[in-house]
Design a protein around this nucleic acid. Structure first.
Lengths: 230, 230
DNA sequence: AAGCATTTTTGGTACGACCAAATAATGATC
DNA sequence: GATCATTATTTGGTCGTACCAAAAATGCTT
């Protein structure tokens, strides 16, 4: 019983989630039940709930019973979310994050060029077509743009990548969301997507990477045009 | 005044940290001072401290005044740490994580081959030499092995990458730490490092990536040999 | 059976109190 | 006067009770 009493409760609940006694979607016992079960004050019970929540193991909305949330890669990024938000407000923060995105997506398109399956190609083509059809609808274009990139993150079949994509889009949304949207820019972006797609179809990783880097570098230029140096 | 009262305190403190009024290393006001300043109960003041702590903005040790900790990429991964630990105990969790490491390091060595500066080359050579000199000292080899990889994460000059490297080594330590260490294996790994280094010196990204992938695939085989399919 | 009003549950907050560890202040000793 | 041991204060950790408001469960009326 070193340190905080809440930690032992957290430990027990965590073990319960691991063992499956508490499954995804189950409700955590109410605070008053926890204090009875663990023989602690409500202060400690609340603290335990708060910790579990900050760790992403449960989802606690005000005045609602906390819900068990099975650990996934997405939950991991959620846990990091608030601190990343702070990070992004520091000088260079957004650029550093976007830089990692460029690097990762460059690797993803190489992977796609080398080993995309028939299903992946179909998904890419579908996403690209939807993107092209939405050039005159800014909101729709924004959606399908993200969807096209999302397909790239799906190709490796590793659940970590889609979670990373969601994290990127969430964290960078404040910038993207405020950027002016114009049909002309949509056309340019669609052309970039098409170039990436073509390179993948040609199974040319170098060309795919080059097209992707050009695309994202261009996107970054737009961010700087809108926000200045950040 | 929607939702939790603690959030507004968190918001104020966060703003204070951003503005520099509270700098890295400063001590947060005591809980009893916070409740006076914000005119709330100690319950709420404590909750605010806990939230700030879970967000990594402060470091709170039991019975010590909380210390301001400027948010860094490292803190973001710390926040995600406990979830990732859970995640890794699920089937395929370790593999999925290691897979992202392979992808990222492959991208890093390509980057290194294309644009490593003189300083970077020196750092790589130094790390490689230290690694080679430690072949017969398993602990030392483990250290220098990590250090060699760390240099790769330093090359882009983006603070996110070193943080990612620390996260990988921390999260995967349970596996790596339990793996048998033999001089023969050290020799193989050192040879792999040398091959990567050579490819970088030749400015050959494809060869560098191939060498890196071979190296990490081999490392994964060792993990599976030790732990079975995980 | 459907709609509505009432009771119970549940999280959010407040106040007051005590403990133990850590720190600051004090005084004794050399 | 500097150093060390002792006391006083600060500070976080825990407990208990109480009240509120929103949400959920319940019961009642039609």
């Amino acid at each position: 019983m070193t340190g905080r009493a809440a930690d032992s409760i957290v430990h027990t609940i965590t073990a319960r989630i691991h063992s499956g006694a508490l499954a995804h979607g189950d409700l955590l016992p109410a605070e008053r039940d926890l204090m009875a079960e663990f023989e602690v004050s409500r202060t400690v019970a609340r603290e335990a709930v708060r910790i579990l929540s900050s760790q992403g193991l449960i989802k606690a909305k005000p005045r609602h019973r906390p819900v068990i949330r099975k650990a996934g890669f997405g939950a991991a990024f959620d846990a990091a979310g608030s601190i990343v938000d702070n990070l992004l407000q520091q000088p260079g923060g957004v650029h550093n994050l976007f830089d990692t995105r460029i690097m990762l997506e460059a690797a993803l398109v190489r992977e796609a060029a080398l080993s995309a399956g028939k299903k992946d190609i179909v998904n890419l083509k579908t996403a690209l077509a939807a993107n092209g059809a939405a050039i005159d609808d800014n909101d729709q274009f924004y959606q399908t743009d993200q969807q096209f990139h999302a397909v790239l993150y799906d190709i490796p079949g590793n659940p970590a990548y889609p979670a990373i994509h969601r994290a990127y889009t969430t964290w960078l949304a404040p910038q993207w969301g405020q950027m002016p949207r114009l049909a002309d820019r949509n056309r340019i972006n669609f052309a970039s997507h098409t170039a990436i797609m073509d390179a993948i179809l040609l199974r040319d990783p170098d060309a795919a990477e080059a097209a992707l880097r050009s695309h994202l570098a261009d996107a970054w230029d737009q961010v700087r045009l809108t926000f200045g140096d950040i």
